[in-house]
Design a protein around this nucleic acid. Structure first.
Lengths: 349, 349
DNA sequence: GTGAAAGCGCTAACAC
DNA sequence: GTGTTAGCGCTTTCAC
């Protein structure tokens, strides 16, 4: 099963390969030639080989997408966004699932490098060490949805708010070693949620977090101010089991808490399950706000009050950024979150 | 930012390029040379370019993955399976999301062709027409999770049951124009569910289906026998809205039905929502069995009784098949389903 | 306007 | 055991 090459087309059309190449990439050629070439190409069902082109041009085109887990609807949505953008640009997308493990992430970066993929959108799991090699090779990378935890998390508003609603000082790029990032506005999302909870009378509010939540946590601390109780800020590993264990442990050790903010949908799931197991009624005994407006939040009983992030947009914008890089100087972007009030929060009992 | 090539390594190691190539692909070389080459390669952080190799070898390697929607946890799980298998084989994966639209599917196939990807795993949306071009070009394709509807659906057990539990006559490959397929055992899954429902006393059982459900429907009809009521078998398009409309319409037009089998998790979601809207209590007024054991099924109230398909395995096995093709003669595979009884079904009232 | 030819990074013959 | 060389399919000078 031999593939039709540019040479075949050239021969069949009685022209040189260069002419075919020109015609197909919109270069100049006499109308007559162009027509003939096009006809022949169509007739032979010719498809230019991306392999040959890319090798020649020293750039693969195509964008890599690395994320922790395709099973999580948040990342699924983000992936859909990336795919949508890539498709409209005619670029193929190479995906890898890291399981939240920096080591696997590192391996996958290696694989992308090997494939000469030089544009990557990632929901990062590793830190600077993991991404160093990629950057050093000249990869264009854009982080989406999350960014690596930083040793010292300074409470600086260093992002450019989307739509120019508000321009903030500085540039995230610097802080990130030059990696543009598309994030949901966690600070505002968390603040809104905390205010809502406080408005309901809650004072003992817990944060149930996962890996990479330093920004959310700092926003949480900031929003809660002097009310923070460090024992009420707990972190779970990346797995469902770890999340459940953390939630269950938290609820058992601190029966005095009256509200929880779950930093992600898997954590929310764990919280619901753990609460049910311990016979804590939501929202009577415990108010719950969950990050991510996944479809089941509405089906849950009671329907869950959530902080919605624009999953798909996160991916779309990141892909845009990575494709535009070089043309436009990439800037980080903050996308708005929304508090969707449903039925999982009640007044402090 | 120039990439290190095999030539650089060769020069730095004082050997020819062929030697480097040999050493790196495990060919023969003297211990001394091998060591030196390896050392130099490591030192230069050399990564062989897949581009060069693939062009030379006339096969891209890498597998394409086409599915309707990454947002659906079923497909997410399937994708994870494919990725896991591909990774252990060191193959990159190119994904495309078709939105269930044959036209987009067709375009994406074209893109894969252009990339010289010759192995693809797909949850197909289109039919023989859509996949013809791919096959004609010599692509190895394996369908997973679903297969194109066939004009005449004959109730023949033409699949090889997994684990040799039971060997069935014939070979799906023929019926599918030679395309091996990895499916969940819908016949048995549906039969089990229907029996369960009938055991509970239900007689007016509806099937809420989506695109590509011909196998499930025929299994449903078979399991229900003379009890089938054609008005109780309804189909929705691929969107959430369509699913909701279908569910709502069904419930309103046929208040006499007492049980529903939703043929997919989005349909199940729609059914729960529509029932709630119409103030039908589950399971008191209406018993529900849903296809796919998604995480939220357990969080729903009441927790949903489901037919679980091994999403991840579906993908993993399909990837295995597509990678092994050529070596082993590909055979279609049926994976078992499981009825997980939770709280969404009750006795006929 | 068009063709010939170089060469992208790699592997597989083929010589030595 | 190792080096030389010829392409894989394509784009891109550079002559004509």
């Amino acid at each position: 099963m031999k593939r039709t090459t540019i040479k075949d087309v050239a021969e069949a059309a009685g022209v040189g390969v260069a002419t075919v190449s020109r015609v197909l990439s919109g270069g100049s050629a006499s109308d007559e030639t162009r027509e003939r070439v096009l006809a022949v190409a169509a007739h032979l069902d010719y498809r230019p080989s991306a392999l040959g082109r890319n090798l020649r041009q020293q750039r693969t085109g195509g964008i890599g997408l690395l994320l922790p887990d395709l099973t999580d609807p948040l990342y699924g949505g983000l992936a859909e966004g990336v795919l949508a953008c890539a498709r409209s640009a005619g670029e193929p997308v190479l995906v890898g699932s890291t399981g939240g493990d920096p080591e696997q992430e590192s391996e996958l970066i290696g694989m992308l490098l090997e494939q000469s993929v030089d544009k990557v959108v990632a929901v990062p799991s590793g830190d600077a060490d993991t991404w160093g090699p990629a950057l050093r090779t000249g990869m264009t990378v854009v982080f989406a949805g999350e960014r690596p935890d930083e040793p010292t998390e300074e409470p600086v508003d260093d992002l450019l708010l989307l739509d120019g609603l508000r321009s903030r000082g500085g540039d995230l790029a610097r802080a990130e070693g030059g990696i543009p990032t598309v994030l949901a506005d966690d600070r505002s999302g968390v603040r809104t949620a905390v205010r809502y909870l406080r408005g309901l009378g809650h004072r003992r509010i817990a944060y149930l977090g996962g890996p990479g939540h330093s920004r959310r946590v700092s926003a949480f601390r900031e929003a809660l101010g002097p009310l923070v109780d460090d024992d009420l800020v707990v972190f779970a590993g990346g797995t469902r089991d770890a999340a459940y264990a953390a939630a269950s442990g938290l609820f058992q050790s601190r029966p005095d808490l009256t509200a929880v903010l779950a930093g992600g949908n898997q954590l929310g799931e764990a919280a619901v399950l753990a609460a049910r197991e311990l016979d804590l009624r939501i929202p009577r005994d415990l108010s719950l706000v969950m990050y991510d407006d996944v479809p089941w939040a509405e089906l849950c009983s009671p329907p869950l009050t959530v902080i919605a992030q624009p999953a798909r947009d996160l991916g779309y914008r990141a892909a845009e950024l990575v494709l535009r890089a070089g043309t436009r100087r990439p800037r980080s972007v903050l996308l708005p979150t929304e508090l969707i009030v449903r039925g999982s929060c009640g007044p402090r009992r």
